[in-house]
Design a protein around this nucleic acid. Structure first.
Lengths: 335, 335
DNA sequence: TGCTAATTGTTTGAGCGTCACCATGGCTTT
DNA sequence: AAAGCCATGGTGACGCTCAAACAATTAGCA
């Protein structure tokens, strides 16, 4: 790596002259500026990032901690975050908590030594279940900026980007009710998560409000280790009348659709299905799955924006919570 | 952030004493060591990463550049890379080239200012098509370590992690031939990539070798903008006799399976399908897709290992190319 | 013409946080 | 008193920036 010192030696001027020349300082003669810049370009000089960061106490790097890259939602969020950050001149250091509290703690710990200017994260499942957030509040106390997205913790005082999980599930359930469905089942493998709980409540609320709905709500929990396909199979066996399915996670809607078709259900005539899946699963289903679109891209982008706003504003401001609009996209699996 | 200086002031000793005490230096009395370490722990002292990096000229950070996180193969590779790197005490800075040459160039450029110790990357599609690799060889010339995985460029002198694309496609085609298939079609949306070309050659070679195979090879190219489903539909319309499909990309195998079932083909009795898909698509198909498993996790892990080997070995050694074994996993779509 | 004052262009030096290296000063040992 | 050992302190360097100091020229004025 070429340094200012080396440039200075070659040009027989001092280091600070070179530094100023590269910044087009008024103090330096045009002639010198030219000579310096020429040599710098010729040797492909790049200011050393570490020295800059040490001096300025800014890294222009964001720590991004997501629970699981293999989950398409988080992959897409990561993509959006990277895009937006890079557009704004920031790099991202990515950590995957793997849904584990310890990994989340260690990632935060390791990066909070000046490696990053702030964190964008979505909370790990274990963290949410155990409801341990001291590792996060400790950083907030230290004044390290943080944006939580999707999976948040209400009591933490920091910026947040969420969707209206309750409202989205409520709206989807309402739609199924409007279709005249009388046996609407909710399937979930995320009931332990903040977002899962909200979505379930939205579903329950919608059913509750519908005076003509005669049956009890049915919520099917899919454990982590469980055989999803078997559970879905059982659903159709034990509950032949099911005529509406709301899947609140990424993939169970697709599985339910496949199984239903396999069992001979006519979709959407006899059975409607709505998923929270992202568009990416669409190529895998026929008819196309109706979904609640989460605008994942916006979630990522907004998270970065909130973070950079906070970093580049000098004055401290109160935490902001942004709610990204969802959209019920009706395709082939609803009437 | 707490600094050595602050500790020193509080303890009324010099900065260097604190530094030594924290490193358990022999020179420092046990008593002092104890006092220093206690306060350090109490104040949660962490050595400033930037200062350390500036001094040591090492960042313990790897730059990872992948073409597309939404592609499950790369998401999984990223996951593996992050896991292994983190286990070895390295962080990763992630950039997504979005298959674009300019983005790839700028990411490399931006991070080669001392931000990372080396790069792990897979080459963007545009880069492979245009066959421009000066931006990469420039870094290699500077001595910046680089590991290429999956999509590589033969003439670049650096470590590489690949699979035997030719052999894998060859083996899969051989299997279809052994089943007695006579109309084996290859579907691909990656014919422009190094790996795509190799896989196509493997397929061609296998057919060529089979004296009893009467028909011409058929390679179906799916353009980027094209409607995959329509193309697959057309395949079945224009070529009703097709009895074997080898999909060499991530998803076309799944689509072909769905379409075939839809058209009434009996799978695997009348038609066998083998994909390069990852396990993740399995939940989306019934019968389960037979696949060539790429051991993506190993690919990522090996890449990190090669990188760290190189970084932590003082002596320069010749570039290494590791070939990760693939495995033909026969499931429900083959006899 | 001779002096100070202003202008210009450049260098010096400090400091960001850390650590390797060398120096110092007090104390014991012979 | 010389030699040796301890525990600690000081310095400089990594690469960069920036305020302040400095030198050299030019302008201003009696």
């Amino acid at each position: 790596m070429v340094t200012l010192k080396q440039l200075a030696e070659q040009l027989n001027v001092s280091v600070s002259t070179v530094s100023k020349a590269l910044h087009n300082s008024e103090e330096i003669s045009k002639d010198t500026i030219l000579r310096v810049q020429e040599l710098a370009k010729h040797l492909n000089y790049q200011p050393n990032k570490m020295a800059l960061s040490l001096k300025s106490n800014r890294t222009n790097t964001l720590g991004v901690i997501i629970p699981n890259v293999l989950n398409h939602f988080f992959a897409k969020a990561l993509y959006a975050i990277e895009m937006e950050a890079s557009k704004q001149g920031y790099n991202i250091i990515t950590c995957v908590s793997n849904e584990l509290l310890v990994k989340e703690e260690s990632s935060l710990q390791l990066l909070s030594n000046g490696s990053v200017d702030g964190f964008i994260m979505s909370i790990a499942e274990e963290t949410q279940i155990k409801n341990k957030t001291e590792h996060i509040s400790k950083l907030l106390d230290k004044g390290i900026p943080m944006v939580l997205f999707d999976r948040v913790a209400d009591h933490l005082e920091c910026d947040k980007v969420i969707i209206d999980d309750f409202g989205a599930a409520y709206e989807a359930t309402k739609h199924l009710l409007q279709e005249g469905r009388q046996h609407i089942v909710l399937i979930s493998d995320i009931e332990e998560l903040s977002v899962g709980k909200l979505r379930i409540n939205g579903y329950l609320k919608a059913l509750e409000e519908e005076v003509n709905y005669k049956n009890e709500p049915i919520v099917i929990h899919i454990g982590k280790e469980a055989d999803v396909e078997k559970i879905v199979d059982n659903l159709f066996l034990s509950n032949k009348k099911v005529d509406g399915i709301l899947s609140i996670d990424n993939i169970s809607g697709v599985i339910a659709l496949h199984k239903a078709l396999n069992k001979g259900y006519k979709v959407p005539e006899e059975l409607s299905i709505i998923g929270f899946s992202d568009d990416n699963v669409l190529v895998f289903t026929d008819p196309k799955l109706s979904t609640i679109s989460q605008h994942t891209f916006d979630i990522g982008k907004t998270s970065v924006q909130l973070m950079i706003d906070r970093l580049e504003r000098k004055a401290k401001t109160d935490p902001v919570t942004k709610t990204i609009r969802t959209k019920l996209v009706l395709r082939g699996t609803t009437k």
